[in-house]
Design a protein around this nucleic acid. Structure first.
Lengths: 191, 191
DNA sequence: CAGGTCATGTAAAGCGTTACATGATTTT
DNA sequence: AAAATCATGTAACGCTTTACATGACCTG
């Protein structure tokens, strides 16, 4: 009746993938090799809906290897250290299982602009407009980034392209909403 | 040159409000009184863009009181314990300052459906459709919740109403996108 | 009187960011 | 020769959730 020894989780149900584990296993499934590569791709492409930092990635790579989902080999480039990861059979299975799982999907938003609008009855109308305009300019920046990314993406129809189109569409929708709200709240100048 | 004693932060710049502090100060500004009340309103109204748990709320209420932004008094209802909070002058100022601040607004999304779509080149086309349909049904549930909330909200034009309209609009946009994507990816049945 | 709601709180565990440190290689 | 990039990693701190515990009051 003791706890089984950890480290290799023998004959055990692998614990479900945590947030970092999901994106890492996926990226390695797509062929990304090193922690650094993964971080680059995350920052370029999934950051807008699923972020990850080095502080998560490197420890998680090791945890996943400890669970037998990844296999690493050292492949220095010149004198430069480099650890390349690939999926094991178990890793491929875990990734597949997660991708197919029918359970509830995480969906969490933290939007400070919305929170300020929620409380904006406490401030003057001009200040409410200022919040909207701040939101709008942040969204414009994000839209430009995504448009740029869109240009650099080659594949015609693919997962990455779908999510980019979604992100761009949603950003544009939010931008429109801000603009409309600003117009609605701006007092008519008497002409 | 030692650190100043904490607890009351004399003559000090109050540290910027953390995530829980923002929503708490705002709710008390709107008249919400107890930790329990705050949690109820958060769950009903801001949860979709700014969540908070009891584990944050109660400790944060005390921290904010320690910083002199809140004042509490015990107001039992019958034999039932009850601690009512209100803003101090400093608290009102801190809330105001945050609402007016022109700095970058937090915007973070964690969307597992999108992450799965991103990796969906690794699974069969039918599985990609399954992810979309899963996203769609979660969004339908959310839309229904928001419609319900909309019915129960009385004020005609207000911060809460604005954010609700935004949330509903965005949910509908995402729903439309999912439906369109599903249609696009569904193979034509030969007729 | 059972089950729900009001009300407050803590502990543990896990999540996640930030800042820092190190050093090689490549580009300008 | 300096600056940028490749590459790996850790420590500290703070955030957040979850689960649990307690007890009074209210409703059917």
């Amino acid at each position: 009746m003791g706890e089984p020894p950890d480290a290799e989780d023998p004959a055990g149900a692998t614990p479900p993938l945590n947030a970092a584990g999901r994106v890492i296993l996926g990226m390695i499934g797509l062929g990304k090799a090193t922690g650094y590569d993964i971080k680059q791709l995350v920052d370029k492409s999934t950051r807008h809906f699923w972020a990850a930092s080095y502080g998560q990635i490197y420890p998680e790579l090791r945890r996943l290897e400890g669970q037998g989902l990844l296999h690493s080999r050292s492949e220095p480039a010149g004198g430069r250290q480099r650890t390349v990861y690939e999926l094991t059979e178990a890793g491929r299975a875990a990734l597949d299982q997660w991708l197919r799982a029918g359970a509830g999907l995480v969906w969490e938003l933290r939007d400070e602009g919305m929170l300020k609008l929620f409380f904006s009855d406490l401030i003057e109308p001009e200040r409410r407009l200022a919040v909207l305009s701040q939101m709008r300019s942040a969204l414009e920046r994000k839209r430009d980034q995504l448009v740029e990314l869109d240009r650099s993406l080659s594949e015609p129809a693919s997962g990455p392209r779908m999510t980019l189109e979604f992100g761009l569409g949603m950003t544009r929708w939010m931008l429109d909403w801000c603009e409309q709200a600003e117009r609605r709240l701006t007092p008519e100048p008497p002409d």
